[in-house]
Simulated assay, not measured.
Amino acid sequence: MPVKAPSSMHRVSRRALIGVAAAALGAVALKLSPLAAAEEARAIPAPVMDEPAAPGETQKVAVLAGGCFWGVQGVFQHVEGVSSAVSGYAGGERATAEYEKVGTGRTGHAEAVRIVYDPRKVSYAKLLQIYFSVVHDPTQLNRQGPDTGTQYRSAIFPADAEQARIAKAYIAQLNQARAFDAAIVTKIEPERTFYPAEAYHQDFLTRHPSHPYIVIHDLPKVESLKRFFPEIYRAKPVLVSQMAN
């Protein structure tokens, strides 16, 4: 079944990439692509501050936005301790939590991913380390790679004051350490509701591994997760489609 065509800049970027599909499927294309190079992962210091797991606590939630949610979801689906990673929208109202509306950049929403994780296996701070080092470039304002607009902003939607405190502390730590070539522009946006995205966006990386956009921008992120975090990388992703069955 054909994938529904995305809208706005997201759609334009994918259309532009279709023309180079053959080259994109090779490693040479990845090396030659300036956008892929700009999104290259890097090793960064581990967070000094973290949230200890409460006795008997087996499930917590993190909501993160870092550009196109296809790649963000795809990376976290490969993290040990994550039981669910769902693509969706956060930052705006329920009535505008639809891809065509979010694509206008006027809804307040960001493409985001809701991550359910076991704090005994992976901590919130470790998820943030993956988010900043592998998932996206936190110094890009209102864009990631070829996608431009506030809907592609770098944003953390903390579930509580403790998550907000950890996120703020880690951003300050990374800025002080000059972990990046520019200041981090990631926004911390508390008290925002997450709304799941349409079904055709879920598990997109796994279902369409040869899609040019996925090949150039997202599969390298999964490989970087494996390279930088081998202790919590898992080869078999946890999929939304499996959860529904």
Rank of each mutant, 00 (worst) to 15 (best):
T96P: 03
A5T: 10
G145S: 14
A199K: 07
V134A: 00
K226M: 01
P146D: 00
E111V: 10
R178Q: 14
A199H: 05
Y124N: 06
L64T: 14
Q144A: 09
G108V: 15
A41F: 09
A167Q: 10
K31V: 11
A29M: 05
H211T: 08
H10W: 10
P2Y: 00
F229C: 02
L35I: 13
L17M: 08
D181Q: 11
A179D: 04
K4D: 02
A46F: 04
Q151P: 09
A5P: 04
Y99F: 03
G56Y: 11
V185L: 05
L35C: 06
T150Y: 06
S224D: 12
P146F: 02
T104I: 08
A95C: 07
E231A: 01
G56T: 07
E98L: 04
Y233G: 05
A112E: 07
Q173K: 10
A110G: 05
P138S: 01
V135E: 00
G145I: 15
V215Q: 04
R227E: 05
A164D: 14
S154G: 06
V185T: 13
V240C: 12
K187E: 09
K31N: 15
L128M: 11
G91K: 14
G92P: 11
S154W: 12
Q173D: 09
D218A: 03
R42G: 03
S83R: 13
F180K: 09
K4V: 08
K60E: 08
P138L: 01
P138V: 07
A5L: 04
V134G: 00
L141W: 08
A5R: 09
V48W: 14
V82G: 04
L30Y: 15
A16Q: 05
I115Q: 08
I115V: 09
E80N: 11
T107H: 01
R94N: 02
A54Q: 15
A95G: 11
V222K: 00
P237M: 03
P196S: 00
G66Q: 06
T206I: 11
K187S: 13
M1V: 07
L128F: 13
V3I: 03
Q59D: 14
I156H: 05
D218G: 03
W70I: 15
I156F: 09
D137Y: 05
Q140S: 11
H10T: 14
H208E: 03
A182K: 11
Y131K: 08
A53S: 13
S241A: 14
K221G: 12
E198M: 02
P34A: 03
W70V: 12
V102P: 08
Q144D: 12
H109D: 02
E93C: 04
V3Y: 00
A183F: 14
Q163H: 15
P237E: 07
A97P: 11
H201P: 06
A199V: 12
G56F: 12
L205Y: 14
R14C: 06
R15Q: 12
V185E: 10
G71C: 02
S7W: 02
